[in-house]
Amino acid sequence: MAEDRRVFRERQFKQYKSDVKKRGKPFYPYVMLHDSIMSLMVVGVIVALATIWKWTTPGDHTGIVMHDGVASTEGTSGWLGKLNDDPADPGTISFTPRPDWYFYFLFYLLRIFKWPESVILGTIGIPTICVLLLIAIPFLDTRAERRPLHRPVAMVTGVLVIFSMGMMTYRGATAKESLGSELLGKVPVWAQKEGFATNPKAVAGAKLFAVAGCMNCHVYLGSGASNLGAPELTTEGAQHRGILFQVEHLKCPSCVTKGSPMPAFASQGQANLTLLAEFLEASQGPK
């Protein structure tokens, strides 16, 4: 049976070769012409994108504006986004960890999986499985049949894969990142709900927490986004981890919790980290 099939497909390929030789057309000029037209269109689209990117940038199209003598990129998004973001600043306190669009589906997967049990599945597991499955396709599907309508399983799987990739890319693209300034307004409410309004260090820590980008990954009292499977921090203090632990963890999360994808905040400095730790320890859940 398997033998039959091998003989069959070898014969079929030989037939193909001789048919092409007899009745095919030469690559040049026919295919070459089509390939060249297509390639010119590709270059045209790329040039058009570059042009739109540059020339829809507001102002003098440099992507830089002066605010009180300080260079800034604020409000310089054209149709295709900014020419430059602000320069990298490891000591920054507000950021959006946004990958390029073709990683949005992965980014979105990370919101579905929860730390730590399944986050590895979402990050390394799923992409690896995808690559292995793709490589396996020719070995799983060994029939010679190529007509789409006669390959229902392949076609349905293909459509489902394209649909879910598209969906996850869309969801990843439209996922709302909370803005530091909006969150800052919530600090008094947090302080009152969690009962640390009388602890000035914790309140200062809460303000840092709101603007430091923590809430791109962590949820606190219903605000923020759950990302990379980061735990909700509303009741972090109830575990009584202690200031020392919190500071060490913030300085280098992966040194304390093996494999943690949380970025290191050592650049914030000891004083700020202590304030953050005070806030975390004071967060013992709504009273």
């Binding site: 320069p87 946004r98 390029d100 943690s260 970025p263």
Partner: peptide, 18 residues
Amino acid sequence: DQTAYWATTVGININGTA
């Protein structure tokens, strides 16, 4: 820039979880 720096920080950390 900022986007680059922080997206890469997180990306590398994710690689670290493998």
